[in-house]
């Protein structure tokens, strides 16, 4: 069968069009017109090329090994040098021309050590208005080796609110340890060993029960007085007179 001349010509034109389109799509037009992947790969390279501003504690150690060792032995061991001295990549690259800042003012130490109720228990904090106001912290404390905080001997060091409430109540003479057993570890790392708490009505009954020997304590009949509840559902043990 003979293919008509016009079909052959149309076929040739169609073939040429297809070839041009394929050439455009596969070779001439850059791949990033059809996919974001090349752009993203370029972005990753650009991002990696950015220069760091913070050099890192190990970089500081290369020159200031003596200070690093002092700091490492003390309570500030985990604090990076650049926490206080600011970003130091520039200084590390050219030690003579740029010096990192040396914060000496009292307000700088407040950043971490001013009292804030949201800070975790046991973190060393001071009241800026009461703790030697006007004096620079560095006069007494070496920031590279701060004096270890004295382990608090009084519960009031951390639990001031409770101790104050108790002192004004009829439980003023009751020691904290009468009701709470406190492990030695609690003074070192408060969260790792929490003090015990009374668990049942009978504990309060040792003083407040009808047959208890404690003279000064008001007595109740433990079997009839609110027997469905724990004592502390109604009475706040640190200040029994206070309304719950």
């Amino acid at each position: 069968m003979k293919i008509p001349e016009q079909i052959k010509r149309l076929g040739a034109v169609l073939g040429a069009v297809i070839a041009v389109v394929l050439l455009l799509r596969l070779v001439i037009l850059p791949a990033d017109m059809f996919s974001a992947k090349p752009h993203q790969a370029a972005k990753v390279v650009r991002e990696m090329a950015k220069p760091p501003h913070y050099a890192g504690m190990t970089r500081c150690r290369e020159c200031h090994a003596d200070i690093y060792e002092t700091k490492y032995a003390g309570h500030h061991r985990n604090i990076g040098c650049e926490n206080c001295h600011g970003a130091a990549a520039e200084h590390a690259a050219a030690p003579a021309s740029t010096k990192p800042p040396l914060p000496t003012e009292r307000e700088f130490c407040y950043t971490c050590h001013a009292f804030d109720p949201s800070r975790p228990n046991g973190f060393p904090q001071i009241s800026p208005t009461e703790h030697n106001p006007g004096k620079k912290c560095i006069r007494c404390h070496d920031p590279h080796d701060p004096v270890p905080p004295v382990t608090p001997s009084e519960c009031s060091a951390c639990h001031g609110t409770i101790v104050q409430a108790k002192a004004a109540s009829s439980h003023a003479t009751v020691e904290c340890t009468t009701c709470h057993q406190v492990a030695e570890q609690h003074f070192v790392d408060p969260h790792s060993a929490l003090p015990t708490k009374p668990r049942d009505r009978e504990f309060c009954g040792q003083c407040h029960g009808k047959d208890a020997t404690e003279v000064a304590a008001p007595k109740v009949d433990m079997t009839s007085h609110g027997s469905a509840y724990k004592c502390w559902d109604c009475h706040y043990p640190h200040a029994p007179e206070m309304k719950r």
Binding site: K50, G56, G80, N83
Partner: peptide, 16 residues
């Protein structure tokens, strides 16, 4: 740019 060079992120580096 820091973690790919083996450094810590800046926030981790300064966290006291």
């Amino acid at each position: 740019h820091r973690i790919t060079k083996g450094l810590q992120p800046a926030c981790v580096e300064v966290c006291p």
